[in-house]
Design a binder for these strands. Structure first.
Length: 955
RNA sequence: GCGAGGGUUGCCGAGCCUGGUCAAAGGCGACAGACUCAAGAUCUGUUCCUGCAGAGGUUCGCCGGUUCGAAUCCGGCCCCUCGCACCA
């Protein structure tokens, strides 16, 4: 079967290609433009990535069948240093890298092509297009393929930045960026794209506090500048060799690693010499802000790699400080061994912050609660975290904090920091929370960049307009439609250019800078409309200057004039201009959930900033991941199924159905081969059932035929509705599960009508085409369909037949009831008597339904009306009791249920028609009776007959 | 911390916005039967508890509230997941 699927896939992909189905050209139809956020070229992708891409192809196929002219272009994002680092590793013949390439199917003789970054990018562009997207049957317009490091693309990005500048959205200011000392800025994030270690690190802002000690300054780094009022002493590690550093006019003492870090963030940093921590012990230094003289004491927990390796001691709020101080004070011999003055024992904790749920000294509470007495106790980590957290959110400065008393900690922190900075008592310092190592092996540090360019996404007007536009957009899931408002508010200025080893576009205002990865991937969908002409050679990058883009995208200037200044023929300019007017805006941009706070807001902001009102994006769709057993399937961590292998193993359509149906797109799914296999079985069953339907050749039509067509019409409407809101899962559920279930019932009921079967099959086949196009085409052809199904129309819903639907559900209910009785009683019946409700009961029932739909139903109202009818009244007390019961039951029906019940059916005729079916299903002889006049009713069952609920007797 | 989402019957997963048709779709798995030499596939039935007449009972994280009526609405609690900036 695997071979057969593969043959089918190749056959139809070839035919689609020959028919040019994927090519998009402007015409008179309504247009639909859809993309997925193009992938970064980082190496081989895995089966998880195909999820979102597949949604896009399925939606595009649906839209095409539904009457739209669809543009679905693809490209890749190659900006960054990923390709550079891979090329370097290949060039160095790194064994792990080679193994990785070969394992994923890279031919041995292509490896040397991967020694340059450009080679890497072109190689993977080819892999993505041919081994992934074409292999999955995507109908993308390949002519428009572009990649973010191509020269023509760069011209577009430069134009975009000129427009941002024109709008005043590019600003310059100092910035602290994580950077490899060799490669330049790198991304520090959990995916570790740029890194070999430390993706979880955070950038902390420390306040450097200056403690005057003779002619020198001891520098402590703190995350809690608001605690300076509680300082009692200063900590140094006696065993560490500190550096004496000249910073401007001052002489600082910090750890050696800190001195190096400082040199990336401050000017004029010069190491003068060394000083052993031990030598500083016992000296007095002057604490900033409070001006107190405090002693320098020893502490082993001062780590030269963290902050400055020197620490100011606030025992009231820092558990580490408190424990160390107590330990020292409680050990006179230790004090003596360091030659400390005995007065150290008299140092008292100074409470400065009131925290709800704590006494005056939060650190003491926290430490004493769990009985921590020694520095280095592992529980200190948690204690510190908790005290800091509670202090930060719940704390208020007490009356000892002159000038800040009563302030919330959050507020005091900023004000005290700023005041000390202004007074020259402090400086700012940024550091990473853990060791970070670049892909190249070099250390990553925080580097100050003075003239960093930013895109000003914090601009209030831009933000307000973007938020307003998002309200009107189709954003899926709905939660993100809501959440994006908060994201747009939170989005700040973003550093948009960088220096160093990096593929990308030169910043047009200063060619030393290269535009970074997020910033050159925000407006690109519109470029797919142009790229085709660069790809076929009609446009050269040199021609694509500001005039060109101003004209074709913004409609500025006169075509003839632009043609003269650019050398682009007028006809081509006009054609591109019209294409953009036609295709843009983008109808849907689909991307993974990682884009929610990075790419999508930037995408929205840039369109809002650069594009006219009528070219703003209309839709965003966010999909969640396919994960491995433990977390994300990761190409770097191995074990993931390569995409071509999965296609071979399961069949492309099975995978497409799996992605579409396995879960809501807004939920992570664990990759599980058994589940995928079950979808493969589903595709096989679907094909078999189609063949079976096609083989029916009966002529007779019965009530079940009306039912079948009614159901099909209902399913067509439902599936279409789901697709309009891009709900592939619900659509797949209808097409691959609900419809087969109905067909099974049709066959079980004896439905054999050729006309009905053909009609149902025709609609069904068309509905399967967006998700499982290969097998749909194959079945379409073998069952005699004309032309390509992929270019056929999506079926239109016809009317439904409520009576036949109610009738069949009535028969199912009867079957169920009989089965239940047989099961419960355990009897082996030979005959079944069915008693349908007498006419008067049906009358009362329909009155009740009618009154309920008119909102006039009540027990007295129904009773009154029913008793006015002679046919009811003559049943006396039974009639009034029945009316009461029916009124009560009917009153709690929903509107949908009432509508269903209002369809007219004749139970006796229905049962008469289905008698043969019921007898063979149940294996009993059946006799039908009107309960008003039963011919055989030894147990008096007939009187229990209710509308839609016949009484029965099994014998 | 900031922002968002979620906890449903063996598993996956609908339903919740718009309260009653909900013991709660569908799939998967399991069990039984039919078919078959057999297996697979397919079809049928069962799959919370009880029940020799189509029924009853107890369920939708926990506690409480609103309501004639709550998986669905409200409040509180517990637990989990996700995003958080130079990674499309």
């Amino acid at each position: 079967m695997a071979a057969r699927f593969k043959d089918i896939e190749e056959k139809w992909q070839r035919r689609w290609e020959e028919a040019g189905l994927h090519l998009a050209e402007r015409d008179s139809r309504p247009k639909f433009m859809i993309i997925f956020a193009y992938p970064g070229v980082t190496g081989y992708l895995h089966v998880g990535h195909m999820r979102g891409y597949t949604y896009v192809d399925a939606i595009a196929r649906y839209k095409r069948m539904e009457g739209h002219n669809v543009l679905f272009p693809v490209g890749t994002h190659a900006t960054g240093n990923g390709a550079i680092s891979l090329a370097n590793r290949v060039a160095a013949r790194d064994p792990d890298t080679l193994e990785y390439l070969l394992r994923n199917g890279c031919p041995q003789d292509r490896i040397e092509d991967l020694e340059t970054p450009e080679g890497v990018v072109e190689f993977f562009n080819d892999v993505y297009v041919n081994d992934y997207w074409k292999r999955f049957g995507f109908l993308a317009d390949w002519r428009r393929f572009t990649s973010s490091i191509r020269p023509d693309y760069s011209r577009f990005i430069q134009w975009q930045f000129r427009k941002l500048m024109e709008k005043g959205l590019l600003v310059q200011k100092p910035y602290y960026a994580p950077a490899c000392v060799d490669c330049g800025p790198v991304a520090v994030d959990p995916s570790e794209t740029d890194l070999s270690k430390g993706g979880g690190a955070e950038v902390n802002e420390y306040t450097l506090l200056k403690f005057r000690c003779g002619d020198e300054l001891l520098i402590a780094a703190t995350l809690r500048p608001e605690t300076v009022f509680g300082q009692t002493n200063f900590w140094v590690n006696p065993d560490v060799e500190y550096a004496r550093v000249k910073v401007g006019e001052e002489t600082w003492i910090v750890s050696a690693p800190a001195a190096r870090k400082l040199s990336f963030q401050m000017d004029d940093v010069e190491v003068l010499g060394q000083v052993r921590g031990k030598e500083l012990l016992g000296m007095m230094c002057q604490a900033p802000m409070v001006g107190r003289e405090i002693p320098v004491l020893p502490a082993g927990f001062c780590d030269p790699e963290v902050g400055t390796g020197l620490v100011t001691s606030v025992p009231s709020d820092a558990p580490d400080d408190l424990v160390a101080l107590r330990q020292l004070q409680g050990d006179p011999s230790l004090m003596e061994s360091y030659g400390l003055d005995p007065s150290v024992a008299d140092i008292e904790v100074i409470p400065i912050i009131d925290i709800e749920g704590y006494g005056p000294c939060a650190a003491a509470d926290s430490v004493d609660r769990v009985g921590i007495t020694e520095s280095g106790d592992p529980r200190l980590v948690e204690a510190k975290k908790q005290v800091y957290k509670d202090g930060h959110h719940l704390g208020r400065m007490n009356k000892l904090c002159t000038g800040y008393e009563g302030l919330r900690v959050e507020e005091a922190k900023e004000r005290m920091r700023d005041d000390m900075l202004a007074a020259g008592e402090a400086e700012l310092f940024h550091d990473l929370s853990e060791e970070v190592v670049c892909r190249c092996g070099g250390p990553v540090m925080i580097r100050r960049v003075d003239d960093q360019w930013f895109i000003d996404y914090a601009d209030p007007d831009l933000t307000a307009r973007t938020k307003a536009h998002c309200e009107e957009m189709g954003i899926f899931p709905a939660e993100y439609h809501h959440n994006v408002q908060a994201v747009l508010d939170w989005f700040r200025e973003r550093a948009c250019v960088r220096k160093g080893s990096w593929l990308g576009t030169r910043f047009p205002f200063d060619e030393e800078w290269i535009i970074e990865a997020i910033s050159d991937s925000t407006l690109y969908p519109v470029y797919y409309i142009i790229s085709m002409h660069a790809n076929d050679g009609s446009l050269s990058p040199e021609q694509m200057g500001e005039d060109f883009f101003d004209h074709v995208i913004l409609g500025r200037g006169d075509a003839a004039a632009v043609s003269r200044s650019t050398g682009v023929p007028v006809e081509l300019l006009e054609s591109i201009r019209e294409d953009i007017s036609y295709w843009y805006p983008l109808d849907l941009n689909l991307g993974g959930k990682e884009h929610m706070t990075v790419h999508f807001p930037a995408f929205l902001f840039n369109h809002q900033a650069v594009m006219p009102e009528d070219k703003l994006p209309r839709g965003i769709f966010v999909n969640w991941y396919i994960t491995g057993k433990k977390g994300k399937i990761s190409k770097s961590k191995g074990g993931a199924q390569p995409i071509p292998g999965a296609a071979e193993k399961f069949g492309v359509d099975a995978l497409r159905l799996y992605y579409a149906h396995v879960a809501s797109p807004f939920q992570d799914v664990e990759w599980d081969e058994d589940i995928v296999t079950s979808y493969r079985h589903r595709t096989e069953r679907t094909m078999r059932m189609m063949e079976e339907l096609h083989s029916l050749d009966g002529e007779d039509e019965g009530s079940v035929d009306a039912w079948m067509l009614s159901r099909m019409s209902r399913h067509v409407a439902e599936a279409g509705g789901h697709m309009e809101s891009y709900d592939l899962r619900q659509m797949a559920n209808v097409v691959y599960f609900d419809i087969p279930n109905d067909i099974r019932w049709y066959l079980r009921r004896g439905g054999r009508c050729r006309r009905t079967a053909r009609k149902a099959l025709d609609a069904w086949l068309r509905m399967t085409c967006p998700i499982t196009p290969h097998i749909a085409e194959e079945a379409w052809e073998s069952l005699g369909g004309e032309g390509l199904l992929s270019s056929a129309e999506y079926p239109a819903a016809e009317g439904t037949d409520p009576s036949s639907e109610l009738g069949e559900s009535y028969l199912r209910d009867v079957l169920e009831d009989v089965n239940e009785i047989v099961r419960v009683t355990g009897m082996k019946a030979r005959s079944l008597h069915l008693y349908t409700a007498p006419e008067w009961k049906n009358l009362v029932q329909s009155m009740a339904v009618e009154m309920a739909r008119a909102g006039e139903l009540s027990v007295p109202a129904l009773t009154k009306r029913a008793m006015q009818d002679e046919r009811v009244r003559r049943n006396g007390k039974a009639a009034s009791e029945f009316a009461k019961k029916v009124a009560q039951d009917t009153a709690r029906r929903s509107a949908a249920e009432l509508e269903r019940l209002s369809a007219p059916i004749d139970e006796l005729t229905l049962l008469q028609d289905a008698k043969g079916f019921l007898e063979s299903e149940l294996g009993v002889a059946i006799e039908l009776h009107d309960a008003a006049d039963p011919r055989h009713d030894p147990q008096g069952k007939a009187k229990a007959a209710m509308p839609l609920r016949p009484a029965m007797l099994l014998e």
